[in-house]
Write a protein that binds this DNA or RNA. Structure first.
Length: 887
RNA sequence: GCCCGGAUGGCGGAAUUGGUAGACGCGCUGGUCUCAAACACCAGUGGCAGCAAUGCUGUGCCGGUUCGAUCCCGGCUCCGGGUACCA
């Protein structure tokens, strides 16, 4: 019978849909549960590209396998549908984003269904649905009404926040201000990145290192705007610690750790000479205080103006003005050349009471630590550069652990910077009583920190790079904040029963140039009056796209619940997510934000687990071939022709080079899954995406490669659909061994997400079966069931042809039997001095001595030995024989 | 600069983590079928030498450990990702 994949795939997709084959069981009694989640897509207008099915197929194989192993499976799909493209389209065409969104979702859903993915479509969610974002707003209210108890390291309801007496005494206004200062969500005047092209603020994380906006590629600027912020910083330690117990790729864990950027050190107070003020610095190296020869404060530091002496005022003001004009891009770009100005003022080094000058320089950042540093040029490369440029003293206080005497000399003389360990020198002082000479770094840090704390000159301190999260955008197509700004300055949140706060209809979607959201155009929606006649305006910013994706995995559990965010029992049953697969581009932001929300919800008793995603896996990107000329100019795919395996420009005839690049519209190398499905079928597409290589690496798409798996499926179908090849009775021992081998291989490979080798093993088995010409019904049945998670349509059809009436989706996955895998002989490779010379088939029961005897008696061994005798013979049972000959 | 990956035939990739390098697939070559092509099927296929048996060589480069190294150690080169004056 011919492999008519069109018909087969249509038939079974209809069957699954009609029978709701993949509907999640609402019985929460099966102790074996498995929640398998894909990173849900933003439904763009372009439709699916071949990158999407990669992750989706992987999770689908995993879930289909788990179902066959008796697990109760939750495997949902939905749409992260708020976002800029739909809004930009609305600006251009006037089409409401909800219409665009709906159309795009319909396309995505159709395409995904055509891949035969076993989602429970009754669980579908859409972040733009008021029934969904009602609960996003609800969580925002929770964040607003939560404070972080530093002692307990836990978020608690704001009603439980103790207000210090000295603040309560100051009255209502100060009390409210205090409480507001502790809320996890706060409204603040923030210096923010502004993208003039998108007319939107961006989170720090959305600005690339070259100063461009991640979304559009245009330059961003700094701007001061009142914005909503989330105090993710307070959760830094929890977020960091939580990483350790996760079954995530180590690389992703490292990225999150680096992003949180914990560093331990101390805050040290320096008296400012001639002012009754203290300048506090953060340092990771308090042990190097004796080498601190100057200090630096950031230009934006609040004390800068005060510290500056009259004589230095002009030059400092000029410097501050110059840095404020520099974009942050320039500031980091010019990292090589340090700049700065002396303030005219001195501070007192607490370890030796020495006067040290205070400088202003933009290599010190306002946002990190205290915005001021003590500079130890001998032991910090940045300070060293600065000191060299401005001829500031460089005092070495560590005898470096180096063997090179020349280098040692340079370091001790202050001509080279040393940041590694060494014994302290020049590190004692009579009047302060401190002496760490001779100690090493770890001891020195501990000793000085103890000394600082005992004299109340400083404290041990932990700092994090992680910044608070800028949580508002000047956009229409996002979740509205459930917030009203009253004319008297009060900020009030809506009551839960007023949710969802929906978006108003607009005529114009264009945001204002100065940074106000398009929502400010909607006067009817915007202006509110309370029952006392007090006037107010709604918050016109909307939430960033991260908001909806921060908690969607929770809503999938109970998507239609109108009364609660989800049913508590269901949450308890399904959480945590057992396997989460998506692109590595979300390694930091989405996963960190999401973990943060989850921890807050956990602290408030809303969810039952501390972490949302137990096991994470990142699929690699799928690249495509592209073409460039000899000079490296890229050529659009439709202008390329192939002749004899070489590539030429269709118009100019110039020879072209084949390269591998990201799929992009401009290169015209985007592969549309629909094209592949129509030519080879969904099963082939699925199989090929998995066969291409390991799931986690980037790999190039090669259309020709699909033929390989298509051929495999075709052979499988023609062989197994022909009843002449299937017989009842005893299986051939070789086939039986092969079958159990492939069962074991596929089972292990699915658990470890190594689908490429699983497919290869199935190919090997099929080749064997075809060579033998026939297999038993039992073997055919088992083979079809191990193929099913990978290529479900063809498997259902073959299962049906085998005489089964029902879907195989819940049939047991075959178990391998160790008995059939046992070998009674092994073909030993015999090597001489490590080089394999011949193979010899021996029973596995032989002892080492017997093996040596037989091998040495073999005439091939005699040939290689010649007249020499072996000095050593190594026998590794069922592995290898190695004969060592000296000379 | 720092952190994390990676480098294996013409190509995508395998290799039980120290034990026969190149599984499986693509491509290519030859053959069967066909008027021909496509499909399908059979055989071959790392490189060099040889009619062949066979030999030599071979996992980015240099060195080391080992009976034995794609795998471990030291030193490089190149490529990819992340991050960047974070004190």
């Amino acid at each position: 019978m011919d492999y008519n994949f069109h018909e087969i795939e249509k038939k079974w997709q209809k069957y699954w849909e009609d029978n709701k084959t993949f509907k999640t069981s609402e019985e929460l009694t099966n102790p074996k549960k498995c929640y398998v989640l894909d990173m849900f897509p933003y439904p763009s207008g372009a439709g699916l590209h071949v990158g999407h099915p990669e992750g989706y197929t992987a999770t689908d194989i995993f879930t289909r396998y788990k179902r066959m192993r008796g697990f109760n499976v939750l495997h949902p799909m939905g749409w992260d549908a708020f976002g800029l493209p739909a809004e930009q389209y609305a600006i251009q065409t006037g089409t409401h984003p909800s219409i665009t969104t709906k159309n795009n979702c319909d396309t995505f859903r159709r395409q995904i269904k055509e891949l035969g993915l076993s989602y429970d479509w009754d669980k579908e969610i859409n972040t733009t649905d008021p029934g969904y974002f009602k609960w996003t707003q609800w969580i925002f209210i929770r964040l607003y009404n939560t404070w972080f108890d530093d002692k307990l390291q836990k978020g608690r309801p704001i009603s439980e926040l103790p207000v210090p007496e000295n603040i309560a005494k100051l009255g209502m206004r100060e009390t409210v201000r205090y409480i507001d200062s502790r809320r996890l969500a706060y409204y603040d005047n923030a210096q923010v990145w502004w993208c003039p092209s998108c007319r939107i603020v961006c989170a720090n994380e959305e600005v690339l290192t070259d100063g461009s906006h991640e979304k559009c590629g245009n330059r961003v600027e700094k701007k001061n705007l009142k914005q909503w912020m989330l105090r993710i910083q307070l959760y830094a330690e929890r977020l960091l610690k939580g990483i350790d117990n996760l079954e995530w790729p180590e690389g992703i864990k490292d990225m999150q750790r680096n992003w949180i950027g914990r560093s331990t050190g101390a805050e040290v107070d320096f008296q400012i000479e001639g002012l009754n003020k203290i300048l506090t610095v953060f340092t990771t190296r308090p042990d190097t205080l004796f080498g601190a020869t100057y200090m630096v404060i950031a230009p934006e530091h609040p004390l800068t103006e005060l510290i500056t002496t009259d004589s230095q005022k002009n030059s400092v003001d000029d410097y501050i003005r110059a840095t404020s004009l520099k974009s942050d891009l320039d500031r980091t770009d010019l990292a090589k050349e340090k700049t700065g100005v002396f303030t005219g003022r001195y501070a007192i080094n607490p370890v030796n009471n020495k006067q040290i000058p205070i400088w202003v320089a933009d290599y010190v950042l306002t946002g990190y630590g205290t915005g001021a540093i003590m500079a130890v040029p001998a032991h910090d490369t940045r300070d060293f550069e600065f000191a060299q440029k401005f001829r500031l003293p460089i005092v070495c206080i560590q005898d470096p652990d180096v063997t090179d005497q020349e280098q040692k000399k340079r370091i001790i003389e202050g001509n080279e910077c040393w940041t590694e360990d060494g014994k302290y020198i020049n590190s004692s002082h009579n009047s302060t009583g401190i002496d760490i000479n001779g100690l090493k770094k770890d001891e020195g840090i501990a000793e000085i920190t103890r000394w600082l704390e005992s004299g109340s000159l400083g404290t041990a301190k932990v700092n994090y790079k992680l910044r608070d999260w800028l949580f508002s955008r000047q956009r229409y197509w996002g979740e509205p904040f459930p917030v009203i700004h009253w004319e008297d300055g009060e900020i009030a949140l809506l009551n839960e029963n007023e949710l969802p706060l929906e978006l108003p209809e607009l005529e114009k979607y264009l945001p204002g140039e100065s940074g106000e959201s398009p929502l400010s155009n909607s006067t009817e929606w915007l202006n509110v009056t309370d029952k006392n006649g007090r006037k107010g305006r709604r918050e016109t910013n909307t939430m960033p796209q991260w908001a909806g994706s921060c908690w969607y995995y929770l809503r999938f559990i109970d998507p239609k619940n109108e009364l609660q965010i989800f049913d508590k029992e269901k949450e308890k049953y399904w959480m945590p997510v057992d396997l989460y697969i998506g692109g590595a581009e979300h390694a930091v932001l989405h996963l960190l934000y999401s973990r943060f929300w989850h921890k807050v919800l956990f602290d408030l008793g809303i969810v039952s687990t501390d972490e949302p995603y137990r096991r994470l896996f990142n699929q690699g990107m799928i690249l495509a071939f592209a073409y460039e000329t000899e000079s490296g100019a890229k050529v659009s795919g439709d202008l390329v022709e192939e002749r004899d395996g070489k590539y030429f420009h269709k118009e100019s005839g110039d020879p072209l080079r084949q390269i591998v690049a990201k799929m992009s519209k401009s290169l015209k190398n985007v592969v549309n899954p629909d094209d592949v499905t129509s030519r080879y079928g969904a099963d082939s597409l699925r199989l090929y995406e998995m066969f291409l290589g390991p799931l986690d690496v980037t790999k190039p798409w090669d259309e020709k490669g699909v033929k390989g798996v298509f051929g495999f499926l075709g052979r499988a179908f023609r062989f197994l659909s022909d009843s002449d090849n299937i017989y009842a009775g005893e299986e051939d021992p070789e086939v039986l061994k092969g079958l159990h081998h492939v069962i074991r291989k596929v089972e292990g490979d699915i658990e470890n997400l190594r689908f490429n080798t699983a497919i290869s093993a199935m190919m090997i088995f099929l080749n064997l079966a075809i060579k033998k010409g026939k297999i038993t019904t039992d073997s055919a049945s088992a083979f079809i069931r191990i193929l099913a998670p990978f290529a479900p349509h063809i498997s259902e059809e073959l299962w049906n042809l085998l005489g089964n009436k029902n879907t195989l989706a819940y049939e047991p996955f075959p178990e391998f039997n160790e008995e059939y895998l046992k070998e009674d002989s092994f073909e030993y490779p015999v090597s001489f001095n490590g080089k394999t010379r011949f193979n010899i088939l021996l029973p596995v029961t032989l002892s080492k001595e017997e093996i040596i005897k037989i091998v040495l008696a073999d005439e091939r061994a005699l040939k290689w030995l010649g007249d020499k005798s072996p000095s050593n013979i190594i026998v590794v049972p069922n592995r290898i024989v190695n004969i060592v000959i000296k000379g």
